[in-house]
């Protein structure tokens, strides 16, 4: 009766209900005595400064871009993974060649240092200053 996606749908519904009921119940049960201190954002005991929506580092974008390419690769591997067994070694090799081609790209990125994180260089002069900034 149920398809596999039907099971996923039930799973989604239960997940939504689980969160919804938990929040609703705690809203009904808990005492509510808000003070100014309680309503501020908790930031490890520090006074929060400015808005949490800060400008991101551009490095995150590059990582996301690389992730997107490999995301498409995974999607293309789904049909292959379901049917390569019917084609014996040829079907297996077809997928392996596909993976190797993408692997070359991965090695390229690695060698070129695109996966390296741009850390601020610490020298003795402004070491203290940068530690504060971090």
């Amino acid at each position: 009766m149920l398809t596999e996606f039907g099971k996923i749908f039930i799973f989604i519904i239960i997940a939504i209900l689980f969160v919804g009921i938990a929040i609703l119940l705690s809203k009904l049960i808990r005492p509510k005595r808000p003070t100014n201190e309680k309503l501020t954002t908790y930031e490890c005991g520090e006074e929060p400064i400015g808005t949490p929506w800060v400008k991101f580092n551009i490095r995150f974008y590059v990582i996301a871009l690389i992730f997107l390419i490999f995301d498409v690769e995974i999607v293309l591997l789904f049909p292959w993974a379901l049917s390569y067994k019917d084609f014996g070694i040829v079907g297996f090799l077809a997928g392996i060649i596909f993976l190797i081609i993408l692997g070359i790209g991965m090695i390229y990125e690695w060698r070129k240092g695109d996966l390296e994180w741009d850390r601020p260089k610490i020298n003795s002069f402004n070491k203290d200053k940068q530690e504060v900034e971090e």
């Binding site: 551009i58 974008y61 590059v62 871009l65 690389i66 390419i69 498409v72 690769e73 293309l76 077809a94 060649i97 596909f98 993976l99 081609i101 993408l102 070359i104 790209g105 390229y108 990125e109 070129k112 695109d114």
Partner: peptide, 18 residues
């Protein structure tokens, strides 16, 4: 397999531009 090469081009191109 050509799709793999196309993705490779996109990967290298994206990294080069970024």
């Amino acid at each position: 397999e050509l799709l793999g090469i196309l993705l490779l081009i996109a990967l290298i191109g994206a990294a080069t531009i970024a």
